[in-house]
């Protein structure tokens, strides 16, 4: 129990550190956001109109208090879920902009990650168990080859072939005419829009799991407890699953939880290629447009996602590997 309590305490401390860094880092940057925005609106060459800058400040709400007060009010706004207004989608609040993109990404990327992990681990374990068989060679060589490709590039290919040339799938967006919600028309459209991005990701993401699982499993197969399990005359299935795979899975679990945490960061390039209305595309836009409030909120979201995933990984590891509990608890 101490193990779990300690892990949770550690999580809270890191969360606080992340939030604090997220507050201070942007403030270390030189320049006045108001001036930058006015400059961008007015065009590069025009002179800076002080009146406009003042107006912009008034609109954004310019901090006048000390840094400490700002920090405190930042924390309290955070607690109330107020992240400010987006510049790009003015005057919508950042939370609303993110909320709209949130589910698109979470559904797409999370499904992809879960499928990749499950498929990758199973393929890797089977390849290791049947080491040097034809199946193993195909999987290993295929993974090494596909691993050199980039998902966005595969995305472009898919778009060209199945989108433009064959016309089987839509080429951009998340849905067409239907109203978002739990209705059949919308679900159909959403699925057909998500299909190509999902395939583009699914070709590449399982590779890490396949190779990782295969390697650890092969190492584990050399362990004495595997030999002993065979000597005990247990069926191959039991030896492969309960003895070999069960142990080989441990390192992958941590990796998987971290990958799930990364879901909130979206898949920037793939989402951009498919013009998919998710968090990744939003992040790309926010970067291009220097939309600080949006960017800050997205960063925080990603960081918190990774942190939560880390916590889950640690807790899960404690359940899966009894040795971890004692070593640290």
């Amino acid at each position: 129990m101490i193990y779990f309590a300690r892990k949770f305490g550690f999580f809270l401390a890191t969360l606080w550190a992340v939030i604090t860094l997220n507050f201070f880092i942007p403030r270390l940057q030189p320049g006045d956001p108001a001036e930058i925005i006015v400059k961008r609106l007015a065009g590069k060459d025009s002179a800076l109109d002080q009146a406009q800058v003042e107006a912009m400040r008034a609109m954004l709400g310019t901090p006048t208090d000390s840094l400490w007060h700002q920090y405190v009010s930042y924390l309290s706004e955070l607690v109330h879920g107020n992240f400010g207004l987006s510049y790009t989608y003015y005057p919508f609040p950042v939370t609303e902009v993110i909320a709209q993109a949130f589910w698109w990404t979470v559904v797409l990327v999370a499904i992809v990650q879960v499928l990749s992990f499950a498929g990758g681990v199973v393929l890797g374990a089977y390849a290791a168990w049947r080491r040097n068989s034809r199946f193993d060679s195909v999987v290993t060589l295929g993974s090494t080859f596909l691993g050199t490709l980039q998902p966005f590039w595969i995305g472009l290919l898919l778009l060209y072939v199945f989108g433009y040339t064959l016309g089987w799938f839509p080429t951009s967006g998340g849905y067409e005419e239907s109203t978002p919600g739990w209705n059949w028309a919308f679900i159909q459209e959403a699925v057909s829009h998500a299909f190509l991005p999902a395939v583009a990701l699914l070709i590449v993401t399982p590779i890490g799991w396949i190779l990782g699982m295969r390697n650890t499993m092969i190492m584990n197969l050399g362990e004495d407890y595997i030999r002993l399990a065979k000597a005990k005359g247990l069926p191959d299935r039991t030896v492969a699953l309960k003895y070999a795979a069960r142990n080989a899975l441990l390192p992958s679990v941590t990796g998987f939880a971290l990958a799930l945490g990364g879901v909130l960061g979206g898949a920037i390039l793939v989402e951009t290629v498919f013009d998919y209305p998710g968090l990744g595309r939003l992040m790309g836009e926010a970067l291009q447009q220097k939309d600080y409030p949006l960017l800050q909120a997205l960063m925080l979201l990603t960081a918190v996602g990774v942190l939560i995933a880390n916590l889950v990984a640690d807790l899960l590891y404690g359940v899966l590997d009894p040795r971890a509990r004692r070593a640290e608890g």
Binding site: D224, R227, L228, A231, G233, K242, Y243, R246, P322, R323
Partner: peptide, 25 residues
């Protein structure tokens, strides 16, 4: 066919038995 013989008729204690038990079970 060998499986039915294993452990019931011939069993073993290995050299480095430190590792011969499954660590997570």
């Amino acid at each position: 066919e060998l499986r039915s013989l294993r452990w019931r008729d011939l069993s073993t204690v290995f050299q480095s038995s430190m590792n011969s038990l499954n660590p997570v079970v």
